[in-house]
Design a protein around this nucleic acid. Structure first.
Lengths: 196, 196
DNA sequence: CCGTTTATCATGCAGTCGCATGGTATTAAC
DNA sequence: GTTAATACCATGCGACTGCATGATAAACGG
């Protein structure tokens, strides 16, 4: 075996270049040449790590998912159930540069998943964990008496996740401000607590 | 002065071809040649009606918006406020072939609007009307005693719209069934009425 | 030291892209 | 009948696409 090189690190490096290209110019502008230039390597080098463009995009989505998951998981270890739920929800919204970046890239993948079965499968795979986490926090809050017991935790979790996803585009295109989005989330959490 | 031809009808015809191409193969596959073939006309004819591809996409989005608006408006004239709200919400979800078609196309435009300012402006323009309609129905329901008076109609309207938008992708990729989506909407409407 | 494997590169290829050009046909105004 | 404007088409152009190919360099196992 030849030159010592971390295969996984290279693929991650390329995946991040894909993200930056999507953020800057949109999914349509993702080409092997563009990504290679963004990654600071030759086109042949990129080809060396992926059998096809579709495989590259698939791994780029996987890498985005783990990035977001890691950030959510990192914040999972303090506060009350409702506090955790709040932070986890806000992680999905484009509230600062980092989350805005991920939201833009994520929305591009979301749209492509409609016509790309492999991307759809990957997204489907991750959904139960997120929604399940939300539902778990709601149930914990109910057990702690912070949320009305007769609310349906699963239905509320489904709603909260879809709600957050649905807020992404309006915030990205400037229809809602960051403050609007946060207060919309806080209103719903306040409602769960029973005080409007 | 020359051949008698309905300019607007032609542009609408092309816009619908754009929609079909997006539905079948995704936004990436939208090219002048592909659209021309789908519309059953030559590429030169398509070029005759649009100065550029971007202008074609912009009108295609406009046409989609009016299509959806018309369908929502057509159903606006019967039933209670909460009933209207329900139907208007369900119009946004991919519950049958027609709405599925529009949801797929709409999501593609939604994603592109993040990197295309003109599309974003058009989408922004329409948002207040939809959300305002929802808020109006909630307020009417409150006045009729069908919805708890101390709920914030505006915040609930914002949530319901984003919620519906956020359900689109999960339904399209098969994570939720049509029945799941309807019952999620019905749960939220039941909650507005005060009974869980 | 040599052969094999890996990493990287430059280039070529057939196909597609948006768009411009030049042409023809049709029709209405004069 | 002539002119001008519109509708439409075929073609060409340069740029770009994903991917395949062949070459070069590096590094370890034998």
């Amino acid at each position: 075996m030849p030159k010592i090189v971390d295969h996984e690190a290279r693929r991650r490096h390329i995946a991040e270049a894909v993200h930056r290209v999507i953020d800057a110019k949109g999914m349509d502008s993702v080409s092997l040449r563009e990504v290679a230039a963004e990654a600071g390597m030759s086109m042949g080098a990129v080809q060396h790590y992926f059998a096809s463009k579709d495989e590259m995009l698939l791994l780029a989505l996987g890498h985005l998912n783990t990035r977001i998951s890691l950030r959510v998981a990192a914040v999972t270890h303090d506060g009350t159930p409702l506090g955790l739920l709040r932070v986890a929800l806000l992680e999905l919204l484009p509230l600062d540069d980092e989350r805005r970046f991920e939201a833009r890239v994520g929305l591009a993948f979301l749209a492509r998943s409609v016509v790309a079965g492999d991307l759809a499968a990957l997204l489907r795979e991750g959904l139960p964990y997120v929604v399940g986490f939300y539902a778990g926090q709601i149930r914990a809050a109910q057990a702690a008496g912070q949320v009305e017991g007769d609310l349906d935790a699963d239905q509320e979790a489904v709603m909260l996740f879809a709600f957050a996803q649905g807020m992404v585009n309006p915030v990205l295109i400037g229809h809602y401000t960051v403050e609007d989005a946060v207060s919309a989330v806080d209103y719903q959490l306040r409602r769960l607590r029973g005080g409007y």
